[in-house]
Nucleic acid binder design. Structure first.
Lengths: 215, 215
DNA sequence: CGCGTCGCTCAACAACCGTTGAATTCTCGG
DNA sequence: CCGAGAATTCAACGGTTGTTGAGCGACGCG
């Protein structure tokens, strides 16, 4: 493991920077930090964590590689910064239940589609989901987040005693719909108009929320 | 991880005069190729393609790194070899429809659970799914495979004209159940006995297959 | 004008990656 | 008994990665 390579570099001129450094071009008229973040979001969601290289992110952002550690620190910090998106699941669920449990199924499907199809939140959600599928530590925190935030919010609106069972069953249908339509884009579900998807899978969610479970 | 290597390999560590190599231990009592394949399957499914290193696979298989290119060629070839599992989706679906469309929902749920919970096929399926979510080329071939193999098999058993729509809707529920129960392992669905899951989500799949879609 | 500071570039570094080639030992058919 | 070939090892190569540190240019404040 120790390569014991002292300061004898194969190249000449060790330690001293090159003759050309500094900032030759004009000052950044656009916000460099935001450009890095956006490039990082798309790269993480399209290629995953391990396959994303800082050099690739820097290239699509049009900046130097060293600017990323300069602004964000380590690669893991860039990742958490890219995943920090504004989404309040509790408010979303409360909104879906606003006018009665009887309509909550369709409302939930609609809200889920909003979240996953918006360019602001969709890529980050996909990345979090993918990481939760892969990394075990991420999976634990992800499922704990779902249990304490999402399922608990459901349970507040369903005052039956099997509320958590019903909530997690509804999650299977909601997640599966999002996978098939937004991620894998399997036809014909992927090509249907939004309202039709809501009308088709809404009743299934509704059955889990308020219908008879044993039949 | 059974490391049942009974015969000890005498590692005579003498000096270090130039290149010394060869095979010091006894010949492979266990099938080396199979051990590499198994280690590769679990590593690919737990860490993904980019994050799996040949050195890591070799370490958990207990062999030298160079044996992997020796047996499997490039890393991509090892990947395709690890993904080559015996699964005949058409037969599976035909079996689920064997005694009538009316019972196909529960049968399909049961067959899906078998497939994803078996240690033989589960990891590879998970890997294929994850890769399809990440890589766009893999996604296209995956969805095309689903359309031409899976959905077409469904459609053969449902002779209505919206057969493909019904099949892809059923896929949302089946995939979502597998995600929540087998991959993310969200409670309480993950902790339920098998038959209860079949009883709970079977009717939802059944509705997509033969129930009224507009209600 | 002097000077610090901020934004940025360049070059290098150590570590690790996949892959190759040569060396060595074993097994086995002739 | 011997040589052919398979199985396994070590060492190295060229490339890429994340990260660091030093230098450069412009700007703002004194």
């Amino acid at each position: 493991m120790p390569r014991a390579r002292s300061t004898s570099t194969p190249r000449a001129r060790a330690g001293r920077p090159g003759p050309r450094a500094g900032r030759p071009g004009p000052r950044a008229d656009v916000d460099t930090k935001a450009r890095i973040l956006e490039a990082a979001r798309t790269s993480f969601s399209e290629s995953g964590y391990a396959a994303t290289t800082l050099r690739g992110v820097a290239a699509t952002a049009g900046v130097d590689v060293a600017l990323i550690p300069y602004y964000f620190g380590k690669k893991q910090d860039l990742f958490t910064a890219a995943m920090d998106i504004p989404v309040r699941p509790a408010e979303l669920i409360d909104g879906a239940f606003a006018d009665g449990v009887a309509r909550a199924g369709a409302r939930l499907v609609s809200a889920f589609l909003d979240l996953w199809e918006a360019p602001e939140t969709g890529p980050a959600l996909l990345t979090m989901f993918r990481t939760a599928m892969t990394d075990d530590a991420a999976r634990r925190s992800f499922t704990e987040f779902i249990a304490s935030e999402i399922l608990a919010s459901y349970a507040r609106h369903l005052d039956t005693e099997d509320a958590e069972l019903r909530a997690s069953l509804a999650a299977t249908q909601l997640l599966g719909m999002v996978m098939v339509r937004c991620v894998l884009r399997i036809q014909p579900v992927a090509g249907l108009p939004r309202e039709q998807v809501v009308a088709l899978v809404g009743p299934s969610v509704q059955r889990y929320l308020s219908g008879p479970l044993d039949e």
